[in-house]
């Protein structure tokens, strides 16, 4: 599969249409710039209508990619169905804050805490419900670019449902000019939406693979994360890809 600019635009536009079908018909999604403006318009509308917004706050103390992917899937799988609908409509919006979950648990009842307490999640919830946590903490800043790693496989926690068979997929993550902060944002969206779409379920296995750029992938893809290139605001870039069953 060639990740052409047209394909990237189609993937990004499809995501917006899937999250907000009632708005998509009225928005111009024909170019990367138009798509960006459309996303800004949707975000602005959401800011005006706080009742319609849902956000997750993720508190990050330390970052170890396999652990974080594992715990992100666990959290997303724990989100109740009604909240999942609202979160999806808010484009699985997630705020990443720097903080130590072990210092916060007495004041903030997190919805999920990583086994090693390296991260914790709260939400999805209304934006204003996150104010106290946001005032106490700072936006996570991970400016270091990713290094490549040898493929590593994680098991998605939880017993597989009796009706389904565990699936193995590859998760490709681009590393060239991609910072830790970029990975949190981009891979989080891919994982959260894959969970909400039923592509990742308890008992599944994911092999994390690093590539400088997501080009030349031959495996059929089940999900592709596309966003504005952080270094070229008029260009879309593929940041991560989840393959079909391997």
């Amino acid at each position: 599969m060639t990740l052409s600019p047209e394909l990237l635009l189609a993937v990004a536009a499809d995501r917006l249409r899937a999250a907000r079908p009632e708005l998509a018909a009225r928005l111009d999604l024909s170019t990367p710039e138009a798509l960006r403006d459309a996303k800004a318009a949707v975000a602005g509308r959401e800011a005006d209508d706080v009742a319609d917004s849902a956000v997750v706050v993720a508190v990050i103390s330390g970052f170890h990619l396999p652990t974080w992917v594992h715990e992100t899937c666990r959290f997303a799988l724990s989100v109740p169905a009604d909240l999942a609908v609202a979160w999806r409509r808010s484009f699985t919006r997630t705020l990443f804050l720097a903080g130590r979950p072990d210092n916060l648990t007495e004041r903030f009842p997190f919805d999920h805490i990583a086994d090693d307490a390296s991260s914790a999640w709260s939400g999805p919830t209304a934006n204003e419900a996150t104010t106290a946590l946001r005032r106490l903490l700072r936006t996570f800043s991970g400016t270091r670019e990713l290094s490549a790693w040898a493929p590593v496989t994680i098991d998605v926690a939880g017993p597989a449902a009796p009706s389904s068979r565990p699936v193995h997929r590859d998760l490709y993550i681009a590393t060239a000019r991609v910072t830790v902060s970029d990975v949190l944002v981009q891979v989080n969206h891919l994982l959260a939406e894959a969970v909400l779409n039923g592509l990742i379920r308890p008992g599944d296995r994911l092999t994390l693979r690093s590539v400088p750029h997501l080009s030349g992938l031959t495996a059929p893809l089940a999900a592709l994360r596309v966003d504005t290139d952080a270094h070229s605001p008029h260009v879309l870039r593929a940041y991560a890809a989840l393959t079909k069953e391997t």
């Binding site: 072990d102 210092n103 916060l104 700072r138 991970g142 400016t143 270091r144 670019e145």
Partner: peptide, 27 residues
Amino acid sequence: GGLGLDQRDVGGPVYLDATRFGLPLRQ
């Protein structure tokens, strides 16, 4: 002592973390 948060390994800053006392994180 549970009062620091060092994120230099990911290109972040070091914070003084007294959030358990309700005081904001300070770089």
